[in-house]
Amino acid sequence: MKHWWWKFLAIALLLVASIAALRVPLSPALVHVSPSRIAPGEVTIEVTGYNTRFTDGMQAYLVNDSQYVCPVRVDVIDASHARIIAEVPAGMRASMTDLVVQGLTYPGAFFTEGLGEGIERGACGPRANKLDPSGLAFTFPNRSILYESIRNLHFHVPMWFTMIALMGLSVWHSIKGLGDGSLDRDRKAVSAVHVGLLFCGLGLVTGALWARATWGAFWTNDVKLNGAAVTALIYLAYLVLRGSVADAHKRARLAAIYNIFAFMLLVLFLFVVPRLNAIDSLHPGNGGNSGFNDLDLDNRLRVVFYPAVAGWVLLGLWLYDLRERTARLAEQLDR
C-alpha cells in the first residue's frame, strides 16, 4: 500500500482531469456569419452562435475601425441563430468590418465595399459595465477552427510530456549504468524506451488526427512534427542497435552511449533549433503563432492541463514499472 500510492494518484488525476477536459463547456462564441461581404444599402445578416443564449432585444452592432453601425432589426430565431437587418452606410474607413452580438465579437466578419472617409458614429457601441454572467462560469476558450477540439490539449500534449519524461528516465539509468556497468540499469533504460515509444506512437497518431481536424492535413512540415519523427527514428535505431549486439555487457554499454548521445542531441533539436528558425510552425507557441497562453482565461485551460500531464506521466511510469518487472522476471528465468 505504501508503495502504491502514486498509482492511485495517477488514476485519480486522470479521472479528474479527463472528466473536466470533457465536461467543461466552451465559452459562447459566434461561429458563422453570412454573407461575408457587405455593400452600402440594406443587408440581412445570418448569425450562428455556439453555446450562446440569444434573446429578444439583445445588443448587436457592426464595428468598422471603431465606428459603429446600429442594426435596423434583430430577429432571434433560437438561442444560437439570429437574423440581423442593417442599413450599411457608404464611406466606411476599413476594408474589414467586425460583428458584435451580445458582447461577442466575430472579427473580420465582412469584406466591406464602398470605402470612404468615415461614417457618422452610431449610438450603439459597447455598453459599459455590463456584467456578463457567462464570463464568470468556468469555461474553455472557444477559438475558431479549434472549437471543441481544444479539449485535445489535455489528451494529445500529455503524450509528449510523458514520452520525454520516460526518455529522460532512460537516459538517467544509462548514465548510471555506464558508471557502474550494471545490467539492471540497462534493463531499466530499455524498458523506459519501450514505454516511451508507445507514448511517441500515441502522440503521433493523436496529433495526426487533431491536425486533420484543424489544419486539414494529417502531416505538415512543421518543426514539432519533424522533432517527433526524429525522436521515433532515434529510439527505433536504439532498439536496432540493441538487437545487433549479442554480448549483454557490450550491448548495455553501446546502447547506453548511443542513448546519452542521442538524447542530448534530441534535446538540442527539440528545444534549441525551433528557437533558431522560429518562423514557420503551425503549432502554438512557435514563430508568430501565439501559444495557448495568450488566450483570455488561459488559466482555465491550465487548471485542467497540469493535472492531466501529471496523471499521464504517472501512468507512463506505472506501465514502465510493469514492463521492467516483467523483463527482470524473464532474466531470472533465463539464468
Binding site: L22, E148, S149, N152, F155, V205, T206, L209, A213
Partner: peptide, 14 residues
C-alpha cells in the same frame, strides 16, 4: 458537432 469527434477519436486511439 463542433469538432468534438476529433476529441472522441483521440481518446479512442489512446
Amino acid at each position: 458537432n463542433g469538432k468534438i469527434n476529433a476529441v472522441i477519436a483521440v481518446i479512442a486511439v489512446i
